[in-house]
Design a protein around this nucleic acid. Structure first.
Lengths: 239, 239
DNA sequence: GCGACGCTTCGGCGGCCACCGAAACGTGCC
DNA sequence: GGCACGTTTCGGTGGCCGCCGAAGCGTCGC
């Protein structure tokens, strides 16, 4: 059977993520940025030598790409497709049983739940709220999967100034849903989600908090989203 | 970080698929039917005791559900979501390096490439041809992800007699793309894909070949698809 | 140039796990 | 009841793999 040929490859791919440390690396890299080997080692609490070996596996397996720069080794997810793969897998996980402990952890956790990037698009309450507002205004159609409406495409290009060419990508769908970890609901992903997130960062409507994935809505951003989408940041718990 | 809580679960989930034998089981079960423990053991060429232990893991991990019936243990993928998860993973694999050897294997492989079921919807040249024909007739919109158009929804209900309620499901998207193993192109999946496949089987427009996943277009089916979609079965290499 | 630093390579250790065969269990058939 | 058969449980075994520390390599800064 054809399956037999695939099963070894499938097992190999899954094996890359089947280790706690490597899984931690990949989830950390879901923020879309490049990390150094040392940062990842410290983050996952393993020896640098251990991290180095794991990174070899992940790059050889095609999940990560690396860039050597001076004495640093920067690694990054190989492509948005890898990010989508990770999102799909994490979406199938049960909600975590443990709650974060301690004030510091609780604050960080609350900030992440409020708003964050998910590889290259928005997630958390912010991501879901924007998605809902777009759907409510007829910019996005969630009936048959995720799809931009004509009005939605016009909104992104005319109102937000996104190049029409930048919305039409090859293999990657222009709009797709991504199941939100904290909200357990879909938010906008795909090319449109990525470009939208770029735009909001460009215009300083959202800003990264610290070095992590968390983002917060700026006052300018709250005004802009209210004008553009009728979104009330306070009511939606975004501020 | 929140990631740390997820990484253990992610590693656990991936670990279920990180074994060659378990991966073989899951890919076999992608045909959507229930297999007995013994069938799977023979298929994957392991001892029954080994298969039993693997099935325990897969069911405890939530990927499979089982039904005890007499002295048989039937197992099945737990839900369409699991099938989608597997499809997503296999879609990220490289095309297999090895070609099937021997006449028998080549025949089986050709039949699978011509048409097959992918869990609960159509795949292979047949699946892609139907998807393309639907897109060409404006029944399906592939611009912004996969979405049924109004005309497409009407076609499924009026021309094929599918209940409108059967197209509107909860968590599962009504239409989505699924990357085809053999064609390396997208075909229609999701609820619409499943109902469409049901219909074609009901009306004997397609028929299963042997006990595997392969299906073939019947003469009636060729006529019907020509009338409904303008699809020429011979030209498309479906017959 | 010299030390600090980030990273890698290597050897070794420990634990986990996939596998099997043998024996036991339960069901269906005669 | 007795046998055949599908399945499970249980030890035992071998191999793989994740981990570390020590040593080595290249880069940067003083």
């Amino acid at each position: 059977m054809t399956n037999r040929a695939y099963s070894a490859e499938l097992a190999q791919l899954a094996g890359l993520l089947a280790d706690r440390t490597r899984a931690t690396f990949c989830l950390a890299l879901l923020d879309g940025r490049a990390w150094t080997a040392g940062e990842l080692a410290a983050y996952a609490q393993v020896a640098p030598s251990t991290a180095s070996e794991h990174l070899n596996q992940l790059t050889e397996g095609g999940l990560l790409v690396e860039r050597r720069q001076g004495r640093h080794r920067y690694v990054q997810l190989a492509s948005p497709l890898v990010a989508e793969l990770l999102e799909t897998l994490t979406a199938h996980l049960d909600p975590p049983a443990v709650q974060p402990r301690g004030l510091r952890a609780a604050n960080a956790s609350a900030a992440l739940a409020r708003g964050r990037t998910c590889y290259d698009h928005l997630a958390g309450r912010l991501g879901v709220a924007v998605t809902d507002a777009m759907t409510g205004r007829g910019l996005l159609d969630q009936e048959g999967g995720f799809a931009l409406t004509d009005a939605g495409r016009a909104w992104l290009t005319d109102d937000l100034g996104i190049e029409p060419a930048a919305l039409r990508a090859g293999r990657r769908p222009s709009a797709r849903g991504c199941l939100d970890w904290t909200e357990r609901r879909q938010h906008l992903a795909g090319v449109a989600g990525a470009r939208l997130c770029d735009r909001l960062l460009d215009r300083h409507w959202i800003r990264r908090i610290g070095t992590g994935r968390a983002v917060r809505l700026t006052p300018d951003g709250a005004t802009a989203l209210h004008d553009l989408l009728g979104l009330d940041g306070h009511a939606a718990g975004l501020i």
